[in-house]
């Protein structure tokens, strides 16, 4: 079994994994970081989005071995202690979630979007969220949350 090493939320981790282990399985089952979800398992819903070297990626469509040497950030890596990340706080304040299953992926995608684009309007937020599906039909408040957080993050 190959050994894979990567940095997850700032911590160096290493484990022996079968080559066909998905990154999301490694994150959830080896590292017990269960904030990253498996929704569709077919690269469509975005519940499994994490950051790989600063870019959002669907961790159900990556092998753990492909992340060798990478810097991974999961939802658990956003808050500083009990201080929530501005995007997390904004989802809370704007009722950007109902059941919450898609939320961690939404937030990881949204943080990547705000890091890379300035002056986000509703249309570009919706385009940026194309890879994330919410089945509670909560998009209105998700867009509102991202917009408010973007203003906060861009300061």
């Amino acid at each position: 079994m190959p050994t894979v090493s990567m940095t997850v939320n700032g911590k160096q981790v290493s484990a022996d994994v079968e080559p066909n282990t998905l990154l999301v399985t490694f994150i959830r089952e080896n590292l017990r970081l269960t904030g990253t979800h498996v929704g569709c398992d077919t690269s469509q819903c975005g519940a499994c989005v994490v950051h790989v070297d600063g870019n959002s990626a669907k961790s159900c469509t990556m092998l753990a071995v492909q992340a060798e040497g990478a810097e991974i950030t999961t939802i658990e890596g956003l808050a500083k202690g009990s201080d929530l990340h501005p995007m997390q706080k904004s989802f809370q304040e704007n009722h950007g979630l109902q059941c919450g299953f898609c939320t961690t992926g939404m937030i990881m995608t949204a943080v990547d979007m705000v890091n890379k684009q300035d002056n986000l309007d509703d249309a570009s937020i919706r385009k940026g969220l194309e890879g994330n599906i919410c089945r509670c039909t909560g998009y209105q408040n998700i867009v509102k949350s991202v917009k408010a957080a973007a203003q906060e993050m861009e300061g």
């Binding site: 690269s43 975005g46 790989v52 870019n55 669907k58 194309e130």
Partner: peptide
């Protein structure tokens, strides 16, 4: 192409 995550990989 696809969505942001598809384009990133």
């Amino acid at each position: 192409i696809g969505d942001p995550q598809v384009r990133n990989r």
